[in-house]
Design a protein around this nucleic acid. Sequence first.
DNA 1: TATTCGTGGCA
DNA 2: TTGCCAAGAAT
Length: 292
Amino acid sequence: MVAAVLRWYADNARDLPWRHPGAPEEVAWPVLVSEVMLQQTPVARVEPVWRAWLERWPSPAALAAEAAGEAVRAWGRLGYPRRALRLHAAAVAVVERHGGRVPSDPQALLALPGVGSYTAAAVGAFAFGQRVAVVDTNVRRVLARAVQGRAQPAPALTAAETALAVEVLPEAPAGDSRLPARWSVAVMELGALVCTARAPRCGACPVADLCAWQRAGAPPDDGPARRGQAWHGTDRQVRGRLLALLRDAPGPLDGPALSAAWDDDEQRERCLASLAEDGLVVPSGGGWSLPL
DNA sequence: TATTCGTGGCA
DNA sequence: TTGCCAAGAAT
């Protein structure tokens, strides 16, 4: 399976800018930025924001020197804007705790704001070439099908899935220390381009012949139905509208200006309060602004 | 462990 | 058109 997937990746990998090779100290920050932006966000929407972000803040120190609100503004419409705040906080932590260099130590990475088990592993593998299991939704889906014979992975990451990812992670042969990391990105790419959630292109899959799910006749998902994310009328929608107004405004906005975001006064105020609690907005001159 | 947290494209 | 889903993290 390893050789087939690696061959497929060599021929089919997308040319994504954060994958361009380089010394760890050169690529660690770009990789970290990409991984945080890619959390729950499609590649196509990340790429232009990532380019502008790194042009403006080519190092953690550059970002750390700016107001957090500028990060929120530059985040644009990527969604989950708390990630922008956390990435800014991570830059500050990198400067304060690691001399401005993104750490390679897994525990140090995990300790950074906005960096969880996936992102820490991804930075370790893709920036530093470490042999660590990178378990994202793509990897989980590919392994669920190819190895476990299931249509979809469990609703939440389980210890068994992590153990399986560790089990299939290849050793680095002599002279190719980065092969385990390449395996991880290859499986992710396979999940993103071929072994997709909805309509997998099994005819184009390099491991279709040994896929447990295919061999079982591609049975439908037998797990519990996933509950969709509500949107219309939710606090998320209201928070999104409020923040959109503030992103597009040069300075603070007062109550009347923000009332344009949502008619329901009670819900609007509640959401404003929750945004303030998250640090995404701060009181400013009787109104509100992005954090300073 | 289950929820919460944006946004927009696509089937 | 509506629901699904996209390189998760924090609580």
